[in-house]
Amino acid sequence: MSGRFILSRGAGRVVAFAAMVLALGAAFTLAEPRFLSNANLAGIARHMAANGLAALGLTFVVIVRRFDLSLAGVAAFTAMTMGAVIAAGLPLWVAVLVGLAVGVGLGLVSGLAISRFGMPDIVTTIGVGSICAGLAFLYTGGRSIFQNFFQSGITDLNDARLLGLGVSLWFLLGIYGLAWFVMHRTRTGAAFYATGENPVAAYYSGIPTRRYVTLAFVACAVCTVLAVLLILAESGNAETNKGANLMMPAYAGVFLGAAIMGGTSVLASFAGILLITMLLDGFALMGVPYYYSDGVVSLILLGGVVLFSDAARGWLAGLLVLLPAKAPATQGEKRG
């Protein structure tokens, strides 16, 4: 529903997004010509795959108007779990299945606590995240796990190529395609949006809203596990701080994308995470210290939500006649 709306009415927004990508790319290329090198573009694609999956998970939760702050904890715990399974000599697919099962379990815990028992989303997920971050130390007391990683073939997820592009990028595109189809072309997707827009109306329309809220948290945890899998594949070992850097880009990507595209959607998150990943990789390439790049991502997140907020749009519309008269008034995620 929302997706179709954006696709048909939002041509201007797509053009604005393309212009931002080009401007960002041009700026980085001017500052550092290696930005367009094959190695760097491949790096962007790889990081985008992990960041993008985390952002996709968050998208589901944001669509049902909740927040999930357990990303980092879930990532750490599932990274160590999958690492421990691989180190035990079991095949890769077993590790992935175990990781996914743990993810589903954790998503169910948060989702049920929030939807069934009415616990507040933010604090519940912070608590679950904290427990997970602690549990991540159970296997090795905090030491890195690397045994059997090369034999298990997990690094192929990072190194293998298909039609000239990295496998992880295809993986990302496939999952985004699936998510786009479900969220924007099926009744299930419409039910997710209805649950977020007006849970009471959705409930009386026969949508089991609690189930969809739970489902959103499960989907978020599963996507986080997939993101972690790619991070493990890239680094070739499992550490307890894996995934600590997933949360901020995911939030920035989802909300920047929603700001640019005029509403939270699968495509908006894709657009947002592309911009954020370009930015982070560009800064890393230029040797900007990590503490500045974190600040810039935060600034862009804040700038994005401020510039595209209803209040700012009202002021701008008063100031500039250049703006389209019928700015789509999406109340979307901007409501407290």
Partner: peptide, 16 residues
């Protein structure tokens, strides 16, 4: 004033 979600605002200012 801007009616922005407190979580997003404070996540961003925390990062900065």
């Amino acid at each position: 004033r801007m009616k922005l979600p407190p979580l997003i605002v404070t996540i961003a200012t925390a990062g900065m």
